[in-house]
Design a binder for these strands. Sequence first.
DNA 1: CCCCAGGCCTGTT
DNA 2: AACAGGCATGGG
Length: 299
Amino acid sequence: MSVSGFELPLPSPFDFQQCLKYMARSPIECLYTADSEGVNRLLRVGTSQRLIRLSCRNNNAMQIQLLRGDALAIREQEELARYIRDWFDLDRDLEPFMQLSKGDPFLWPLAESFYGLRVVGIPDLFEALCWAIVGQQVNLTFAYKLKQRLTEQYGEAAEWEGGTYRLFPTPERFANVTIDQLCSLQLTRNKARTIIEVASCMTNGDLRREELLTLPDPESVDKRLTAIKGIGPWTAQYVRMRCLGDQTALPIGDVGLQNAVKQMLGLDRKPTPRELRDLFEQWPGWESYITFYLWRTLY
DNA sequence: CCCCAGGCCTGTT
DNA sequence: AACAGGCATGGG
């Protein structure tokens, strides 16, 4: 038994349009193409590449179509469904967040403006780590360029109807890549070294997503990740938020978060780390959602 | 030439 | 623990 498409039921609140708007924010995004009605993406399912399109007629169910290739075996469908649920954080109940927001002068405008937006995930650990690393202390425009160069240089690609679709490279792909080669893509030496180190750790099994997910608390995850030179607190929290589904992650040193809070509160300076912690103490468990929504106010 | 950007490391208090 | 300075890289 096999299928060339299937549906996933959606939680409430969920707004696919909000997610698409987020995903369409960069004109040089290289890992998928988002339009006003859906998103196309090349994914690895099992050992093969699959080109899929996601769309939503209403917000009750998401349609997943295979754009070409053999139908999916049931096992493959399950794997793909798992990926998509992580991608759009479909297993989370946002009702408590909406309740928390009601009557909250800081939260309500966010919850209302971005109603139904999910923390869009990066389920692949290597991709999430690399995206965080290239995004350290550079503006987003440049971060997207670096991701694009890494992907075009080292990732697999497939053509479809005149467009090119790409997979983010695997850690194994970097086994014989040198720091100088990555530096030629305009990565700093530190970033190049860190990416190669992360790739090596993942290839030899020292660093695995499943293992991070079994650690007892967020602090253990931070500790494991920051043990790698070049991965600091910001990157660890970013990965917890975008890859591990940990919605208590609060990237306190994030300049975007600081600027967004400054604007929201009408401050004449960026909030201090202490002030940010104090502010977020009111909303335990929703740090990542609030951060993600705050980032959305910036663009 | 300036300041800024979804930081990190190392060394001091 | 918390802060300060240096560092590397492009964008505006």
